[in-house]
Design a protein around this nucleic acid. Structure first.
Lengths: 331, 331
DNA sequence: CAGGCGTATGATAACGATAACATCGCCCCA
DNA sequence: TGGGGCGATGTTATCGTTATCATACGCCTG
């Protein structure tokens, strides 16, 4: 920067100002500075800027997995909003593991992010303490934690699943199954399962058709396997709710392989409004959790909080049940 | 840090050392320091560390889109490798747009990453210049650029497509179509199309069944639309190669809707070995580009280069043709 | 025409770590 | 027994920006 200043015939301070947007620099001077910088191949050093100004322009974010279209969409939406505000996402994948989440959060906080967006409301004690004492906005997404750390942008996974159970019951189904993953790891999946069990009880139905599809991520193939298991153990199953559209599609293919008509013999439901559920034959009944909107709202909230605005603590993004081809027409 | 030093009864330098892994500090002293830090709620500040040590632990990466399982897998694999080396990915999505890539690269370089991994080998002149003068390892992936900037971890998209054409020709197909996206934006898609056209010429066949599915990303729905277009204009088409498995699956659903038997009436091929192609009914013939391996190799290369090793400039990750259910049995 | 104000720029001193070098014991071997 | 070597710690001076205050120079106003 000193070199640039020399070439441009100004002080380093003026160069610094020329590189800021709000810098109170004469337009002509700024042009001269930028020309000098270009000529010298100077690249502004944000690591130094960060230190002195105590502003990094980082927003830390954790997600369970990148390779999940829902979370990828959320991150993509956040990224787009942040781009306009010169904020850069620091992303860490936790692999559905709170211990790894804790380590990730620790590493991320060392980078002095100006906000932290985490997925889900369940954390280790230490992770929680770190977030509470970080003195930056913390936003929990994709969930409605019972005891939020800071702000929340999410919805009730349990309630969404209850709605789907009600939908299938209204269609006349009674023997309804659920395919989900290891409840200890995927807490949102666990909430959906909990919602299923509670809803079945509400309707006076048995919730014993629960298939554990193992450790997340629950792939299409795992969904197919789980469906095979369910059909073997309970051949009279009338409807199946799956923890995601991916497993629902897997279940659908298993039915096709066995010659079981969907939805005539069995109704299916998924979660997440993945592309596949809109195009498969038949299309899959699902819950649109508005992944992009969650990302947008969370990012806008961060921007607002950083601008000193007094934003609302809890934004609920209500999911929407999309009744599609795998729902048997009502009786 | 000074506070921690005071509480622990040591100098700040010793605190600094206690927080490094290789620090030559007495185990007992380190324990005392860490206890003091914990007690005070001190969080190590990497922004300061970065400045003085001139090492940021950042690796910048650009990908066309996060919401693409292939690129997400590549990034996920890189991330896992980097995690073990205390490196953090700085990710930017370019939206298949070289102008945006240029801006992203500029912003990323200001953060002083220690390496830069970009997807594809086509860049704006300025982006190219910035990468060349950045004095850090630059790795181009998912492609074999004609004129590489630095290192390369990729494969020939054209050659992979030629192989698939050869496969379909060997099955006795002659009237083969191609569904792809806007060639100006998705350069890898354009390479596949180029490979298709060249291969058809090699076999003395006409390559006029080219459907443009528009601006990327090419979704399943766009694949279905494109297939409809192709079937309308060329009802006698025997085989279709799609730019990705997603569009191939869309094409498959369109066939199902029209009652066209796959593969008996039409063979289909995709690209990318997405989950969907392994589980759809029928399963989809595809090219596995080894997305994870590309990420791993690129990340390992970065780690090796940062360790001062003299790594090979060009790593070719050969793709593999996976012949599956959408390929008509040979004549 | 003095006083005041706004614009444009400069000088100085940090921001919070650490590289580099210095120091101090202590052990070991010739 | 003395010097070399090594492990553990401290001192000093930055890393490349920018917050803050100071300065210089119009220009307006009463």
């Amino acid at each position: 920067m000193a070199d640039v200043a020399r070439v441009a015939g100004v002080s380093p301070m003026t160069v610094s100002r020329a590189f800021k947007r709000d810098g109170t620099v004469n337009a002509e001077t700024r042009a001269r500075v930028l020309a000098a910088a270009d000529q010298l191949g100077y690249v502004f050093d944000r690591t130094a800027s960060n230190l002195k100004s105590q502003r990094t322009g980082f927003v830390a974010a954790t997600i369970p997995s990148l390779n999940n279209a829902n979370f990828a969409e959320t991150v993509g939406a956040m990224s787009e909003v942040f781009e306009a505000h010169d904020l850069q996402i620091l992303l860490a994948a936790t692999g559905y593991d709170t211990a790894l989440e804790e380590r990730s959060i620790e590493q991320l906080l060392r980078r002095r992010p100006e906000a932290l967006i985490v997925t889900g409301g369940v954390h280790t004690d230490r992770a929680r303490r770190m977030m509470e004492s970080a003195a930056i906005p913390v936003i929990e997404t994709w969930d409605l934690p019972r005891d939020p750390i800071g702000h929340v942008v999410g919805f009730s996974n349990a309630a969404a699943t209850r709605e789907m159970v009600a939908h299938f019951v209204a269609l006349g189904h009674r023997r309804i199954g659920f395919i989900g993953g290891d409840a200890d790891r995927d807490t949102r999946g666990a909430d959906r399962r909990r919602g299923f069990v509670a809803a079945m009880a509400d309707h006076g139905l048995s919730a014993d058709r629960l298939i554990d599809a193992g450790t997340p991520p629950i792939t299409m193939a795992r969904g197919a396997q789980a469906m095979a298991e369910l059909l073997d153990s309970h051949p009279d199953t009338e409807a199946v709710i799956c923890v995601s559209d991916l497993s629902a599609f897997g279940a659908l293919t298993e039915c096709q392989r066995r010659g079981i008509a969907v939805p005539d013999a069995v109704s299916l439901g998924g979660f997440g409004a993945y592309d596949i559920s809109a195009i498969s034959v038949p299309t899959i009944t699902t819950v649109d959790a508005h992944a992009r909107r969650i990302g947008e709202e969370a990012a806008r909230l961060v921007v607002a909080l950083m601008a000193g605005e007094n934003a609302q603590g809890r934004i609920e993004v209500p999911p929407r049940l999309l009744v599609r081809g795998t729902s048997r027409p009502g009786v």
